[in-house]
Design a protein around this nucleic acid. Structure first.
Lengths: 155, 155
DNA sequence: TTTTGTGCAAAAGGTTTGCATACGA
DNA sequence: TCGTATGCAAACCTTTTGCACAAAA
């Protein structure tokens, strides 16, 4: 990565902090930088290890604090899968997720709409025999899709 | 609930154990019975408390063991949300989930297909500028939708 | 009678919290 | 300088594990 690209990246990271009013520290800068450079949904442990390999030392507690601040500011998205350690993503635009059944890797999927969820809400709350509800009866604020399969590296 | 309904329910629970070759114990019977009667996605704590309120005493460890056996046998489905305690569901038919943003309640949604995921898989793995992938490039085995909003009790 | 489930307690992750110190603005 | 982020350790919550005992088939 060239110096020009690197410095423009630094600018955009600084700009993100300034825009959201989050105070800049070496640890916070490095966490956001790492998430922007590596779209592999790092865990807290991944981030702590990556930071301590470079110049900005950070304790686990600081990584947690930092991530909470970044999520709060809308700069990072949190994603927890099957009760395991939370994963973090600098892509905060709407998107879905793909999870590899073999290696557990998580990848972002481009956003797509679900026609069944675009319908006008209805006043009724019909229930099936299995206790399920029709999606028509809800006030929907958001939704996300988790797709599972085998990633190309595991094929 | 009348005696006839109750005895036919007991029959169907026993039949489920027999069909899947899972050994019947009072604890296991009560866990499956509770999940069948209450479609509210109980946690391990909920189940342990509910069982100890009735006749079949069960330690937390036994509830965990029991749930693993039932999930393994395909009689129960596990659902974990946001890294909190796992929830369990006797509805093992394909369905989606609704989560209330206010009270956190989880409800089953009837199954619906996602047209974007029915497409033929393609050989390419296009990437967007944000590092996202097109869903066309994947070998999809399954998917689930998590819908969020406000449930009718919280409106 | 043999196999396997149960219960207790201890341990193992992952995350949160309290507090003294250090640092950014 | 003032406010707050950091780092450490302890606490907390959920889940797993080891082992002696009890119960199911």
């Amino acid at each position: 990565m060239g110096l020009i690209l690197e410095s423009s990246r630094n600018k955009s990271i600084e700009e993100a902090f300034r825009r959201t009013g989050v105070r800049i520290t070496p640890q916070r800068f490095s966490v956001l930088e790492h998430l922007m450079l590596h779209p592999d949904h790092a865990t807290v442990d991944d981030l702590a290890a990556a930071l301590n390999r470079r110049y900005a030392k950070a304790s686990r507690a600081t990584v947690y604090n930092t991530l909470h601040a970044l999520v709060e500011a809308g700069l990072v998205r949190e994603f927890t899968l099957d009760g395991k350690a939370a994963r973090y993503d600098a892509n905060v635009d709407p998107h879905h997720h793909f999870v590899c059944d073999v290696c557990g890797a998580v990848e972002d999927l481009e956003w797509f709409e679900i026609p069944a969820l675009q319908q006008q809400p209805g006043p009724k709350m019909p229930r099936t025999q299995k206790g399920e509800h029709s999606v028509k009866a809800y006030n929907i604020r958001s939704y996300e899709v988790i797709v599972r399969g085998v990633c190309r590296r595991c094929r």
